[in-house]
């Protein structure tokens, strides 16, 4: 389309996305993951069945910006809340959207129990290794060596202990049907992550069991890096601790 000589993109909006203000930083990886989530919901024709349960973090903003039902719940408790939703709305496609602080730190018990019970829900964990929303402190998922405001010289196992690989823990439980870890820092990994999410939704909605997709996302602000360095930092550090791929597939 042209308008007075200037070129306009017809629509860059993802399906189900509402245009409006957001408060995310330039270079943030979360919106890429949001987009994949919304595309998957639209492509699987789940828009009229989807209920999202969202934790506390920078990604919470999606509650305003996507045209599906959302319940914004307490920090860490989304899998328990989603359990209540799903048990009384068995036909709904119920998912949680949470961060690493939300899942690995505050809500580790909730996600593991939901997985062990085999709840027919999908948890998407956006892992940037930091409490982004509160300004860059160490989470249980921060990687060794990572500098945060509460691990100024880098996370050191001696002092701070080791990162918690939530996806591996979930995969070890009999109730989980599918577990994968993707990232959103390159075109290839973005496409791959979308395939993971799609399968995760299919299996949970199909009643097979609990499904979990961890998505490594960039947080240049919380990593104290120039915006453009986010994707490379993710390759060099996070993927060493959190290797990408399918950890478990029931079939």
């Amino acid at each position: 389309m042209t308008d007075g000589g200037r070129k306009k993109v017809a629509s860059a909006l993802a399906p189900l996305q509402l245009s409006g203000e957001h408060h995310l930083c330039p270079g943030c990886g979360h919106p890429v993951a949001w987009r994949l989530l919304l595309e998957v919901i639209a492509e699987l024709q789940l828009a009229g069945r989807a209920i999202g349960v969202v934790g506390h973090g920078c990604y919470t903003n999606i509650v305003q910006l996507a045209d599906i039902d959302f319940l914004q719940c307490l920090h860490g408790r989304a899998p328990a809340v989603a359990t209540g939703v799903k048990r009384v709305q068995p036909e709904a496609a119920v998912f949680t959207l949470q961060g690493d602080g939300d899942v690995a730190s505050e809500g580790l018990a909730e996600v593991l129990h939901a997985a062990a019970r085999g709840e027919r829900i999908t948890t998407i964990m956006l892992n940037n290794g930091v409490f982004g929303d509160t300004g860059g402190q160490m989470t249980a998922a921060s990687v060794i060596g990572q500098r945060t405001k509460t691990s100024l010289d880098g996370r050191d196992a001696e002092t701070h202990g080791y990162p918690v690989p939530v996806a591996d823990l979930v995969a070890s439980l009999a109730g989980s049907a599918y577990v994968a870890r993707g990232s959103v820092n390159h075109a290839g990994s973005i496409a791959q992550t979308k395939r993971y999410m799609k399968r995760a939704f299919e299996l949970a909605v199909g009643g097979v069991g609990f499904t979990f997709v961890e998505v490594l996302t960039m947080c240049p602000t919380g990593w104290f890096l120039p915006t453009a360095d986010g994707p490379g930092y993710l390759d060099g550090t996070f993927e060493q601790t959190y290797p990408l791929g399918v950890l478990k597939d029931c079939r």
């Binding site: 349960v53 408790r77 328990a80 359990t83 209540g84 939703v85 009384v88 709904a92 909730e110």
Partner: peptide, 11 residues
């Protein structure tokens, strides 16, 4: 929190 979820879903 489960009760909250079920209540939010109308039960």
């Amino acid at each position: 929190n489960m009760a909250l979820g079920a209540g939010a879903a109308g039960a």
